[in-house]
């Protein structure tokens, strides 16, 4: 650990944020710097390995895991703007590499200092955003991996409570999966569609202008469904709002 009051953190961007919505990565950097961190983005990162992990290809997952471990172990913390990628690094890697005498302990050490960004800001940095104001209403969906693998529930709500004028509305079934499931949504599209259709019903029933969540995969699924249905609900990653980006284009809106 370097200076504990100013940790050096490595940002794991995630493959989806890298390709589809880099704004989330820049929001993460802004928030982490505002919370007193020195942020770096190691270039030897690609993806956390979930496509292989969820397909049962443990050998490929382990190869990607070793690469992530090597790239991020010099940092005080590894921060991820996604509960599912953070969950894979925290729980998946140590399990997958448990029998490897060299990489097992390294995976366990990295897991301990890996955090999803909203929980890191609240639980570790005790951070509250300052001077934020956004007119309108929003509802929040608890993404499953963040909620159940990492216990993220109160942190995003606490952070969002600091945004002036933003009315938070309850979402029926806020803890029910949206039907994304990574490879699941393209392997079983009809089932996934039925699930996300029910989710979209609940989002529209909330009457909120915006849908917020902490995982881009889930957000792309819900936003894509809402748009196909002709809904006007705008979707953002929660940290985009917290970094002051609520006035910009929402997910899928023309930049």
């Amino acid at each position: 650990m370097t200076d504990a009051s100013r940790p050096r953190v490595g940002l794991f961007v995630t493959c989806l944020v890298d390709a589809i919505r880099p704004e989330i990565g820049f929001a993460a950097i802004r928030l982490l710097e505002d919370a007193g961190c020195d942020v770096e983005v190691p270039t030897r990162q690609t993806c956390c390995g979930q496509p292989a992990y969820n397909s049962g290809d443990d050998a490929s997952t382990a190869a990607v895991a070793r690469q992530v471990i090597a790239a991020f172990e010099p940092f005080d913390h590894l921060i991820v703007p996604s509960g599912s990628c953070a969950g894979t690094i925290r729980h998946g890697y140590p399990t997958l590499l448990a029998s490897d005498s060299e990489w097992g302990p390294r995976a366990a050490r990295l897991a301990e200092k890996t955090h999803e960004i909203m929980s890191y800001l609240v639980d570790i940095r005790d951070y509250t955003p300052d001077g934020l104001r956004l007119e309108g209403s929003a509802t929040y969906h608890d993404s499953c991996a963040g909620l159940r693998e990492l216990g993220i529930h109160d942190q995003p709500r606490r952070l969002l409570a600091a945004v002036d004028s933003l009315e938070m509305r309850p979402l029926d079934g806020e803890n029910v999966c949206c039907g994304f499931g990574g490879t699941f949504c393209v392997k079983y599209p009809a089932i996934s569609n039925a699930i996300v259709d029910e989710k979209a019903d609940a989002i529209e029933r909330s009457g909120a202008d915006m849908l917020l969540a902490g995982d881009l995969g889930c957000l792309m699924n819900m936003a894509g469904k809402l748009n196909r249905r002709g809904s006007k609900v705008r979707c953002f990653h929660t940290i985009e709002i917290l970094a002051g980006g609520g006035d910009g284009p929402a997910i899928g809106e023309k930049p």
Partner: peptide, 20 residues
Amino acid sequence: GWTRHRDLPGPTGGTFMERY
């Protein structure tokens, strides 16, 4: 599998790594 049931949000610009 994706676009039969829902739209796909297109990338907002270059990749994060390029823009960073």
